[in-house]
């Protein structure tokens, strides 16, 4: 199980990376493993949408489960990764790279302070 150091994590298994005020968001290795083979990704937002932390990004379906993914931060949606819609298995293969879901122009970076770092998230996952 991978827990990249440079990312921040949520207890609901999303990761976020912020560079120059732009957040890239995805689901963690732990999440993809728990879901097993992802067969479908559905986004509930479009570029330019104004979103708040906690809003739904969309739903990820595997054969046996469906998981809703949420925005860890508020802001404006810049880009949606359409590639995961066409080839959902990327989410299993590379959750932290090609499997990113959305990019957001962050409106309030202080929201990130409440998130877990890699060590805390790893400990959290091992406890489950």
């Amino acid at each position: 199980m991978k827990y990249p150091q440079e990312l921040k994590y949520l207890s609901t298994d999303e990761w976020v990376k912020v560079e120059d005020g732009i957040a890239t968001i995805g689901i963690t290795d732990y999440a993809q493993d728990a879901l097993s083979d992802v067969v479908y990704v559905e986004f509930e937002i479009d570029p330019d949408d104004e979103v708040s932390a906690g809003d739904s990004i969309g739903t990820i379906e595997s054969v046996k489960a469906a998981a809703e993914v949420h925005f860890p931060v508020s802001g404006t949606v810049l880009e949606v990764n359409e590639e995961v819609v066409d080839t959902p298995e990327i989410l299993n293969q590379e959750p932290y790279e090609g499997g990113w879901l959305v990019k957001v122009q962050v409106s309030d970076e202080s929201e990130l302070d409440a998130l877990m770092d890699a060590a805390a998230y790893e400990a959290y996952c091992q406890d489950r």
């Binding site: 067969v39 479908y40 739903t59 379906e61 595997s62 054969v63 046996k64 489960a65 469906a66 809703e68």
Partner: peptide, 13 residues
């Protein structure tokens, strides 16, 4: 198939 759309998995969603 595609049962992840259904109530027994998505429940309130």
């Amino acid at each position: 198939t595609l049962t992840a759309r259904e109530q027994h998995i998505r429940r309130g969603k």
